[in-house]
Design a protein around this nucleic acid. Structure first.
Lengths: 353, 353
DNA sequence: ACCTAGTATGCAAACCCTTGCAGCATTTCG
DNA sequence: CGAAATGCTGCAAGGGTTTGCATACTAGGT
């Protein structure tokens, strides 16, 4: 059926070893022989059996990637980066999606780790202890997640959030709400911390934490009414999907963006230029995160003993679009439409829901 | 380092074959032995070496998936389906993206085909002859592409387009424009044919083909002005991304949707409920397409001699949203804003650009 | 007690490639 | 001219598993 090295060797009149060497270390074989072998190999359509090679070398030249949800554009972009960089390096990537289920993550890693040389987990939901344990069983790099023990490609949320806050303050906003993501999400905590840090630096800036919501459009829809009731003039969403949900519900409620409330997302997804109004968003170089993670896995494979590196000089940008504007007198009128027990509500809302 | 079957065998006091059988065909081994082997295997954390297994069986239990662009939500959904069904069947999937480059597709297939048991290509851009040739070299199933020789999961565009047309006609539209995708795209041709067929069945319905555009948001932006100039009261876009572009440019131009022009997309992407106005779209069960393609590959692996099957009873739905409405008097007034050499223009536009 | 049928286990080959080592030939230098 | 060095090539082992076949053993029937 398939043509093997033995077949090529027979036809070319050399030994199997020579065929193998001709492909693996061409400089170790005489030019004339090399040409002959390569020609016959090409002519016969020879492709080395990767299972056999892998059996000897212990390497598969496959990388694994685990994301919570393939349909989420955030992960799609990361995947794009991982796949493209892997391909450049002569690797292919097995992808798997945990359906946002933390317990599946460990199982997936264990299933995959004998198939691949190394793995990348993007935004893993599993607890630290599990992650650390998994890293002991295979070469693992994390994206968008902090860890002392495991190498990570991290996003400097403080820098990104600062960009957003400076922007909002420049527009006159002083009361800013945050619609958070899952409380188990590291980046949610990082963003909340960043917001608190930045807000604390300015005495007149008040941050209202509205708690945790699903990291999807639905989460934004769910949070929108709380935002309105909070009295904030601007809102920062955990991510763009949540921001989409906010925009949608605001429109239903007749709250004008940005005249009544300014909205900022995080991620700057490809879609975010197309919402109405278009969404101001803190852009994360997702594709580059994917690329960087592959570089990291590869270097880890070469130098297994190196201590965990934490790569986080990925540059943010702020994509300013139509969803943010100056605080205007209409803001207050818009908010007067809703029950205004602002104080009590704020207390209530400042804890996670 | 890694624990092998030999190690388990030694500890459990049986032969390697028994270890192998205990895992592969438990019913062929005595209950007591089975339990002993399984226990020690579990205890020692034994995981069969897949390279060695693959070397013998010739199977990798890996499936390949090639899509033109991972960041395109259309393919993200398909990928989700492929990956989930593959996982259920005990397979993992290697994913690769051709960056919309037809010449890369063949190379990718050839690179991958020794690594995988079977492959799925979604919306391949390569010519038929190449595809047929590739199918000769490995087990291949196509999604969203017609082929006589290669098994396909097809989408019954006629049915979907009919749904859209019936809807538009019910709203009073009689002059309907089509903004096409790439002329090399099979589904573009299928949709155009379907539109022509349906339009031809009603004497009073006029179809204006505006030609081929990029299958992205940018394509819709580029086509929008032609749509306005065409005098159509409704427009069907090649896909939702193109429709997003239309909506965006219409808004810029001050053309109201749906009051001036109704817009229908195809694909019903997850985002399409969130545009302003939300987009009426012909929904394709993308995740199911992915699933069905895996089923097909798997059955092909079991019965390699079966003739190519063409699966296309995937049910469409029409998601009616805010971008379509009844033809109103304002339609004409809106269109009178633009130069109205409708006849000549129509002739011109009826060929591909 | 003996034979048969059946069942459970082990043996060993095979899968295809990589690679250390040995061998051979050719060249180089003393 | 002989010996050593160098450059290519082949031999053969070995990697971990699966599986057909042989063997050993059990139990049932007579």
């Amino acid at each position: 059926m398939a043509v093997s090295a033995r077949d090529v060797a027979r036809v070319a009149g050399v030994s199997i070893s020579t065929v193998s060497r001709a492909l693996a270390r061409p400089e170790d074989v005489a030019p004339a022989t090399l040409e002959k072998v390569l020609d016959t190999a090409r002519g016969m359509g020879y492709r080395p059996n990767l299972a056999a090679r892998g059996l000897i070398t212990g390497r598969t030249r496959i990388l694994g990637l685990i994301v919570p949800d393939l349909e989420n554009p955030f992960f799609a972009s990361v995947t794009k980066g991982v796949q493209s960089r892997a391909r450049d390096a002569g690797y292919v990537v097995i992808i798997s999606d945990s359906d946002e289920d933390p317990s599946q993550e460990a199982e997936l890693v264990r299933d995959l780790c004998k198939r691949v040389d190394g793995m990348v987990m993007c935004s893993p939901r599993a607890p630290d202890s599990v992650i650390t344990e998994l890293a002991g069983e295979c070469t693992l790099v994390l994206i968008n997640r902090q860890s002392r023990d495991v190498p990570t490609v991290q996003i400097d949320n403080l820098e990104g959030i600062r960009l957003a806050m400076v922007h909002l303050r420049a527009l006159g906003h002083r009361t800013i709400a945050y619609v958070g993501g899952p409380s188990t999400s590291w980046s949610n905590m990082a963003r909340l911390d960043a917001l608190r840090t930045v807000a604390a630096q300015r005495a007149d800036t008040e941050l209202i934490n509205l708690g945790s919501f699903q990291p999807y459009v639905s989460g934004g829809v769910a949070a929108a009414d709380l935002v309105i009731a909070s009295g904030a003039t601007a809102v920062v969403a955990y991510n763009d999907l949540v921001a989409y949900g906010l925009l949608d519900r605001f429109r239903q409620r007749g709250v004008a963006v940005p005249d009544d409330i300014s909205v900022v997302g995080v991620d700057d997804l490809p879609m975010s230029g197309l919402t109405t109004p278009s969404l101001t968003s803190v852009g994360i170089p997702l594709v580059n995160c994917g690329r960087a993670s592959v570089d990291m896995v590869l270097s880890l494979l070469e130098h297994p003993t190196w201590p965990p590196v934490h790569h986080h000089d990925l540059s943010f940008h702020l994509a300013v679009r139509a969803s943010t504007g100056v605080v205007s007198p209409t803001s207050t009128s818009a908010l007067s439409r809703v029950p205004s027990n602002t104080d009590g509500t704020k207390e209530l809302l400042d804890t996670d829901v």
